[in-house]
Computed example of a mutant assay.
Amino acid sequence: MEAHTLELTFPPEPGSVAQARTQLCDAMAPDLQDEQVETLRLLVSELVTNAVRHGDGGESVEVNAHWNAEVRIEVVDHGHGFQPTPRFGRSDEPGGFGLYLVGRLADQWGVETTDGTTVWFVLQRH
């Protein structure tokens, strides 16, 4: 199975979420099942939204994708970094569910906080 890589850079603005989602899904859809494309679409949207909201605001958001036997997506912002914490708000309060969804839908995920914040996830291909 051939390995593919896509590295993208976006301005830290809300419109970048749709751009990232569209570019990644268009590039990867020929190699994935429809269900995996929909999961990818949701998780990329959540992570890029978080990077735009919580990043530095002055530096670009980077999205790196690698796929062959598995799909690995990394979203990088150059903010101050953070440690994910469990969500304690009521379920009807808006926001705060992005990393919860990543944890439920991804096969693996994590956060690295050297030189900003990198949130990554892995989807196993079926």
Score class of each variant (00 low, 15 high):
Ala27Pro: 01
Thr85Ile: 12
Met1Glu: 12
Asp31Asn: 06
Leu101Trp: 10
Ser91Trp: 09
Met1Thr: 11
Asp26Asn: 14
Gln23Ala: 09
Arg72Cys: 06
Gly103Lys: 12
Asn50Glu: 11
Arg125Gly: 13
Arg41Asp: 15
Phe82Met: 15
Asp77Lys: 08
Gly81Lys: 14
Thr9Lys: 13
Ala27Ile: 07
Thr39Glu: 14
Val71Leu: 15
Glu2Gln: 08
Gln124Cys: 07
Trp67Val: 03
Asp92Pro: 05
Asn68Ala: 12
Ile73His: 00
Leu42Cys: 11
Glu112Ile: 11
Arg53Val: 13
Leu123Gln: 04
Glu93His: 11
Tyr100Cys: 12
Thr113His: 08
Val61Ser: 03
Ala20Arg: 04
Asp77Gly: 08
Gly116Gln: 02
His66Thr: 12
Thr49Gln: 07
Gly57Pro: 15
Ala27Val: 02
Thr49Ile: 04
Val71Asp: 00
Glu38Arg: 12
Gly15Asp: 15
Trp67Ala: 03
Gly98Thr: 08
Asp56Glu: 15
Ile73Arg: 01
Ala69Arg: 10
Ser60Cys: 07
Ala69Ile: 08
Glu46Met: 05
Gly89Glu: 14
Arg125Ile: 08
Val111Gln: 13
Glu74Met: 08
Gly110His: 08
Arg53Asn: 15
Leu24Trp: 00
Val122Pro: 04
Ala69Cys: 05
Gly58Ser: 13
Thr22Gly: 02
Glu2Leu: 06
Gln83Met: 06
Thr118Met: 04
Asp107Phe: 05
Val63Glu: 00
Arg125Gln: 11
Glu62Leu: 05
Thr114Trp: 10
Glu74Gly: 02
Thr49His: 07
Thr113Tyr: 06
Val48Ala: 10
His66Gly: 06
Ala18Asn: 14
Thr113Phe: 02
Glu46Trp: 03
Thr5Gln: 13
Ala106Lys: 03
Ala20Cys: 12
Leu105Gln: 12
Thr49Lys: 03
Asp77Trp: 07
Glu74Thr: 10
Val44Ile: 14
Gly103Ile: 05
Leu6Asn: 10
Gly79Pro: 13
Asp92Thr: 11
Glu2Ser: 07
Cys25Asn: 09
Gln124Arg: 13
Leu105Glu: 06
Gln33Pro: 01
Glu38Pro: 00
Gln33Val: 10
Val102Trp: 01
